[in-house]
């Protein structure tokens, strides 16, 4: 065992190195392109210290908490052998982590505004709110569905590229039929659903499942859950836009 303080110090240096590119980019544009002094240098320095500390703790906790939990759950479900409970867990994880996602709440509110301006819904507070919360539910459901589908794929060993290609074809076909206003939002909604805590958990779950099921290769079958989780909201959101 290394001394914990030494380990933390070392990973803090690593976090600082991860952050360096941003600092350089900001400094370059601020001083050389925009030719302006830094606003609030003290706040800025303090913020950078927080970011470095935060990244260090996060990665430390990742290896201590999130990765092992995903792995343990995957092993336990594989041993229990109940597909029903595994799939319910997959759905709960996808739905539960997405429905409260702050980025999604923000995008849903903006989408409601677009819809109201485009005349798809009445321009009243109530109509906008119901549209936004409906959209949130649709996206959360679609992520739950995606994780279920992804877990099923790992269990059955279905080839991922076929499923992704089918997803792409659906996206492309629906693009031509969905209202123009919803397309940008639908495309973006795929990206906002996967949060910083969900990604490590879902990855550990997939890799854990693929390594504890016989005949599955963690590299070939373990990854891909995130891909489903970012593709399926696009399809569901466009469907929502078409039906409403």
């Amino acid at each position: 065992m290394k001394h914990p303080l030494l380990a933390i110090g070392k990973s803090m240096l690593g976090s600082l190195r991860d952050l360096m590119p941003i600092i350089l980019v900001v400094a370059f544009f601020q001083f050389l392109v925009l030719k302006q002094p830094l606003p609030n240098p003290f706040e800025l320095g303090l913020g950078i210290v927080f970011v470095v500390l935060g990244l260090t703790f996060f990665i430390y906790g990742l290896e201590m908490g999130l990765f092992p939990v995903g792995q343990t759950l995957a092993n336990a479900f594989a041993r229990k052998g109940s597909v029903f409970w595994l799939l319910s867990f997959a759905f709960a994880l996808g739905f539960g982590t997405t429905v409260a996602e702050p980025a999604l709440i923000a995008v849903a509110a903006e989408a409601a505004q677009v819809a109201a301006q485009g005349g798809m819904i009445d321009d009243t507070n109530l109509a906008r709110q119901s549209y936004a919360s409906g959209l949130r539910m649709v996206v959360a459901f679609s992520v739950g569905f995606a994780i279920v589908l992804g877990v099923l794929r790992i269990l059955k060993g279905w080839p991922i590229h076929l499923m992704i290609v089918i997803g792409y074809v659906l996206v492309v076909v629906m693009t031509f039929f969905a209202p123009r206003e919803i397309i940008g939002i639908a495309y973006d909604s795929g990206g906002v659903t996967t949060s910083t805590i969900t990604v490590p958990l879902v990855t550990a779950l997939g890799v854990g499942l693929a390594s504890s099921i016989k005949g599955r290769n963690p590299m070939l079958d373990g990854f891909g859950l995130i891909a489903f989780a970012s593709l399926s909201p696009m399809i569901f959101v466009m469907a929502y836009g078409m039906l409403l």
Binding site: I22, V26, E43, L44, G45, L46, G47, I48, V49, F50, V51, V52, L53, G54, L55, T56, F57, F58, I59, Y60, G61, L62, E63, M64, G65, L66, P68, V69, T196, I197
Partner: peptide
């Protein structure tokens, strides 16, 4: 205990990270 401590680190870490981003970046 270790897993819970790990979750604690993740929460504190992510919190500090976000605060720093909001303050600086």
């Amino acid at each position: 205990g270790r897993v819970l401590a790990g979750f604690g680190y993740v929460i504190v870490g992510l919190g500090l990270f976000l605060l720093g981003l909001e303050k600086a970046l």
